[in-house]
């Protein structure tokens, strides 16, 4: 579990690095289109993986176990 988490973290950094570098260095138009097309879905996938695997807080765990009924 820990191993996959660190792997996802490294991959999310690696895949969002080209985007950040692109913002700073301003590559030619064709290259920037290619970078955006390829790395926006990929980096969002890995960032989502990292967000998903975040440790749940105590409050969230309680919320999850609580049976709620608000009258609807």
């Amino acid at each position: 579990m820990i191993k996959t988490m660190t792997k996802n973290r490294i991959m999310s950094l690696l895949t969002s690095l080209p985007l950040i570098l692109g913002f700073i260095l301003n590559p030619p138009l064709v290259i920037s289109i290619g970078l955006l097309t390829f790395f926006i879905p990929l980096s969002s996938y890995y960032i989502g993986q990292v967000l998903m695997a975040r440790p749940k807080s105590k409050k969230e765990e309680e919320e999850r176990k609580k049976i709620t009924f608000t009258g609807y």
């Binding site: 879905p41 969002s44 989502g48 967000l51 998903m52």
Partner: peptide, 30 residues
Amino acid sequence: FFIKELTIPDTSSMPLYVAIALALAGAWVL
């Protein structure tokens, strides 16, 4: 959906399962 848990079904063919969904988003970005 970005903070929801992702589990990959046993029956899926793994690289394609992820890659082709990303391809759809990439195509529309282009």
